[in-house]
């Protein structure tokens, strides 16, 4: 089942996009966005995996050990940080929307603007 991690990544991506497009609540929409991003973590880590490789930390393994790719792990770290901040910002925007329009339903936001 060597394609399984890729299948999981694609599934999370698709399901998340579907959730974002059909969401009826801004908080739910933000959570769906995190599902999309979870797909990118799985994808990055799956790409970098080397069969039977160890973590790229040489504190207690010999220098010539086989390790997984450190670059994609670094990219995943960046991904996580960006996601956390974007989610925080989007939640603040959702609170503003709720305050201004009295609803969290994206469909009603435009209608109530008048």
């Amino acid at each position: 089942m060597s394609f399984l991690p890729y299948a999981v990544a694609a599934w999370l991506f698709g399901v998340g996009i579907y959730g974002v497009a059909t969401s009826r609540n801004l908080i739910h929409l933000v959570v769906c966005l995190t599902v999309v991003q979870s797909g990118t973590y799985i994808l990055l880590l799956a790409i970098g995996y080397v069969g039977a490789g160890k973590a790229p930390i040489f504190a207690d393994i010999p220098l010539n050990s086989k390790v997984v790719d450190p670059v994609v792990q670094t990219l995943t770290l960046t991904d996580v940080v960006v996601e956390a901040t974007v989610v925080a910002l989007l939640l603040a925007l959702a609170m503003q929307a709720e305050k201004r329009f009295g609803t969290l339903d994206p469909d009603e936001l435009g209608v109530m603007r008048s």
């Binding site: 069969g51 790229p56 670059v71």
Partner: peptide
């Protein structure tokens, strides 16, 4: 899955510890 050969990753895994002495690549 499990057969990735990233040029940068492989290079860093070899040179990072001798160059920077930091064990967490």
């Amino acid at each position: 899955f499990g057969h990735f050969q990233g040029a940068y990753g492989n290079l860093l895994a070899k040179v990072a510890v001798p160059e920077r002495k930091a064990t967490d690549i």
